[in-house]
Nucleic acid binder design. Sequence first.
RNA 1: GGUCGGUUGGCCGAGUGGCUAGGCAGUGGUCUGCAAAACCAUCUACGGCGGUUCGAAUCCGCCACCGACCUCCA
Length: 490
Amino acid sequence: MENNLTLFNTLSRKKETFQPIKPPHVGLYVCGPTVYGDPHLGHARPAITFDILFRYLNHLGYKVRYVRNITDVGHLENDADEGEDKIAQKARLEEIEPMEVVQYYTDRYHNYMQALNVKPPSIEPRASGHIIEQLEIVKEILDKGYAYEKNGSVYFDVEKYDKDHKYGILSGRVLDELLSTTRELEGQSEKRNSFDFALWKKATPTHIMRWPSPYSDGFPGWHLECSAMSAKYLGNEFDIHGGGMDLLFPHHECEIAQSVAAHGNTPARYWMHNNMITINGQKMGKSLGNFITLEEFFTGNHKLLDKAWSPMTIRFFILQAHYRSTVDFSNEALQAAEKGFQRLMDALQQIEKIKPGDTTTFDIEHFKSKCYAALNDDLNSPILIANLFEGAKAINGAVAGKVSFTEDDLATLRELMHLFSGDILGLETEDKSDAGDSEVLDGVMDLLLQVRQQAKKAKDFDTADRIRDGLKALGIEVRDSKDGAEWEVK
RNA sequence: GGUCGGUUGGCCGAGUGGCUAGGCAGUGGUCUGCAAAACCAUCUACGGCGGUUCGAAUCCGCCACCGACCUCCA
């Protein structure tokens, strides 16, 4: 299968032409959420980034198996010995079953991803449902001598691994430096070295999430689930592994070490990392107290927000920045995104009003190739959007009689605009009116605008303006044009 | 301290060795009864200092500032 898609591979720190291992199949694995809290803006970024990749690969004709996990075992809160499982902690605080916590936040995550028009992955495996697979990897790594058991827990021997393979190929970390920078944190650990990480942890008596194993009643280590589940559903070597930049080290580095130790090869060929979201220039994070949940965004119920911002505004805003750049949130920037998005959506509707002419004065082929070129250049969504605005300009120009399209070219333009903005970027008009009332509303509006038209004819502008201003106060915008008035619920 | 990345006009945000990014905001105009929308035109740039080059915002060096990772995080 032919494509010109290039992707920035964190492993090589270069853009590389994308070539799947077994075309037309593509295996894509993305680290999903840990479901112990409400979904926030940070969850939206990778979900949307890899949604675009998923949609585009499908468009190119690949058969994509997209696996995005749900982490429901919970990582440890602190240093291993003192640490507590996040989900278990939440469950204890709320006096419910851990799986109730997991179910609640998983549902919330799904609802908000749907609102953002993020397509569900092909498979969404849960860590808790793959304990057996994880234990198999623990055994393999132990058998091959890259792990050791201590008091019922199993740790990965990074030093030994580093001698035979190289630890740090993804993040560029050097073991000696890690040793010197983490020495202070070392306590009375069971670990031989501070940078060793747990493959299996023995549960303390109060730890409620636990499973039996040959080593102890316990739970799998921090990084193991992704190795186990990606291998199970995509094979020991698959095409693309994605996630947030914050997962690059140690999470993905450890994943690579585990997979190499167990299976002999790096799990994925291409590693893609989306950058972080910042708020007023600073990373959004729980510990910084500046994180905003998606619910807060959609309702405007947060002290940093001037008003509610719709899911599509947020999607559009995120796509206006390249996925490897940080994107800074502010009310001013969101306002600009909201208006820009509206302009694009309005233009898409205006296509239907264009009357075909004898000639075409817009270079559609050039437009098309520029759009593909943008996507092929490491999913450059901001450039694609800039191109779509050029399309929008041509559409508006045609409505204004300054640009002309033949019937065929008009159909092509319509198709391309919908393809790139709708199918690939997933941008869709948000219906703000209640669907059930729309028929009645349409009738009422027609009537009102007829009355207004009559008033205007009779030069009774007081009445005409009263209708327009009154509707505006109700959130309905009236726009006059040569062929009569249009209206829109704002 | 180590590693990596960034610094673009009022705001957000692309990109590139010489040719308009784009959106939002502003200004002037067309259209309109007036608006709105749309269209046309237009203004604000590439952190600082050196170097390479015919030419650098774009490549190199130094400096300043900001951020990320090194601990859970998307």
